[in-house]
Design a protein around this nucleic acid. Structure first.
Length: 427
RNA sequence: GGGGGGAUUCCAGAGCGGUCAAAUGGGACGGACUGUAAAUCCGUUACUUCGGUUUCGAAGGUUCGAAUCCUUCUCCCCCCA
């Protein structure tokens, strides 16, 4: 199965420029995807693009990952209803660094002719002067053409307007494509469907400037079956960086996907083939309560992103918290063991002296720890029956916890709602 | 340069002197049901030492009393030139 067919059956093909498939069929081709340095880590949303790049490489092509040191300074207006804030150079560099490291995990940089490469568009933009740019690039693309883009049109119609900086974004990105086409023989740019306009500006620029031909291909925007945004949890974005989203939380994110979503995700985010996936889906349909599908999905992705050991720990934690993990089991563990089970769970520390007199729940959860942002909120949720400590529902906001309540004379397991666990360590 | 409209609690959006911590919808969170799913139903949605305290772009003022009236300021939008 070739690259495009592969994307097609996985539901990852949104738009493709005519001739792309034929071009790729000719043999090894080079293609790229750009990554925005808006944060110092990529998130599950970018995972799709990473996977696309990996699939591209597996199909025998040469992938380029472009980190946007230059484009990040401008800000892509696509899909944004508001003008974006500019990032400082310092933050930008920090972000680029983090993203680059993550990309390195996934692609193969040492496999001969189609080894992956990471490029930073700052390298070719840093010495490009404004006058040169508007003469060499701006001259080839009309404003009429640029204004016809959806991302621009929407903003021109809206109240907030659009700065010249963001307006020029598509030219900057368009030039990236030209540069890679010219110097790296890169004939294809891929990306999310929101990038179509930017990508096409690139192919257009290549055509007008050098009479060259380049291709484009985009993947659909991932949405959940209920239409809401993919990749968010209560705590915000789901990141690939284990410091921002622990492997346990990461595993839980996938495990919690609905049946419909999971069936989609497994095609999008794993390398399992059609037969394997159909088998899992069938198995799941036969006994949905076992959640075979979600488990397979979560396991596969967590392992690829965080490694086998991290997955094991996440599974262990999950087992304890959502399986038949009893307090006796915790009691039987030594401190090391407890900490291991709770790795990846948000933890708080209180000193023993402080705790010795005991705390009422409200002080404990809203003041001494940040389980709740305020006592009022803690109280409300306790009254609503949404808080448990050591597996037991907190009966009333006046409840006091003392040293005798500690597990191993050290720990309290706090549960907010069904799925949010916290570990309080007294030492 | 001239004229007009607007800024309300996470968002949208009512309120237009007291009954307003502020309608309604959305979102979010919690509960029930379940499969750590979906759908559905219910509850909560400023802080609090539960006495109160601080909120309606900012600062002043009128009033027993203001999100609601007046003054100044900041920001946004629209129309004309």
């Amino acid at each position: 199965m070739n690259f495009v067919e592969e994307l097609r059956w996985r539901g990852l093909l949104h738009d493709i420029m005519p001739g792309t498939e034929e071009e790729l069929a000719k043999g090894m081709a080079s293609g790229y995807i750009g990554f925005d340095p808006t944060a110092d880590s990529l998130h599950v949303g970018s995972l799709l693009q990473i996977m696309t790049l990996v699939r591209f490489q597996q199909a025998g092509h040469k992938p380029f990952a472009l980190v946007g040191g230059a484009t990040g300074m401008v800000g892509d207006p696509s899909g944004k209803s508001q003008e974006r804030n500019l990032l400082s150079e310092e933050i930008l560099n920090h972000n680029l660094n983090g993203i680059q490291k993550q990309l390195e995990r996934f692609l193969d940089f040492d496999c001969g002719a189609n080894s992956a490469e990471i490029v930073n568009n700052y390298d070719w933009f840093k010495s490009f002067t404004f006058l040169d740019f508007i003469r060499d690039v701006g001259k080839h693309i009309t404003v009429n053409y640029m204004m016809a883009k959806d991302s621009v049109k929407k903003r021109l119609e809206s109240e907030v307007g659009m700065s010249f900086t963001e307006f020029s974004y598509q030219l900057v990105q368009g030039y990236d494509f030209y540069y890679l086409w010219k110097h790296k023989n890169c004939v294809l740019q891929m990306g999310g469907s929101d990038q179509w306009g930017n990508i096409v500006t690139g192919t257009e620029f290549i055509r007008r400037k050098d009479g060259g031909q380049a291709f484009a291909l985009t993947s659909p925007l991932i949405k959940k079956s209920d239409g809401t945004k993919f990749g968010k949890t209560e705590g915000g974005n789901v990141w690939l960086d284990p410091k921002k989203t622990s492997p346990y939380q990461f595993y839980q994110f996938w495990l919690n996907s609905s049946d419909d979503d999971a069936a989609n995700y497994i095609k999008i985010f794993t390398f399992l083939n059609e037969d394997e996936i159909n088998k899992i889906i069938a198995e799941h349909a036969a006994a949905p309560h076992l959640r075979v599908l979600q488990k397979a999905l979560a396991k596969d992705i967590t392992e690829r992103v965080h490694g086998f050991d991290a997955l094991e720990t996440a599974l262990k934690t999950t087992d304890f918290l959502f399986g038949n993990g009893s307090l006796e089991f915790l009691n039987s563990l030594d401190d090391e063991g407890v900490l291991q089970v709770f790795e990846g769970i948000t933890q708080f520390e209180i000193s023993k002296e402080e705790f010795s007199a005991g705390y009422d729940v409200l002080t404990l959860l809203a003041d001494k720890t940040a389980v709740f942002p305020s006592k009022g909120e803690a109280k409300k949720m306790i009254v609503g029956g949404g808080v448990s400590v050591n597996r037991e529902k907190v009966p009333a906001p006046e409840k006091v916890f003392m040293t005798s309540d500690l597990i191993n004379e050290k720990f309290l397991v706090v549960q907010k709602g069904k799925k949010n666990y916290f570990l309080v360590i007294v030492k």
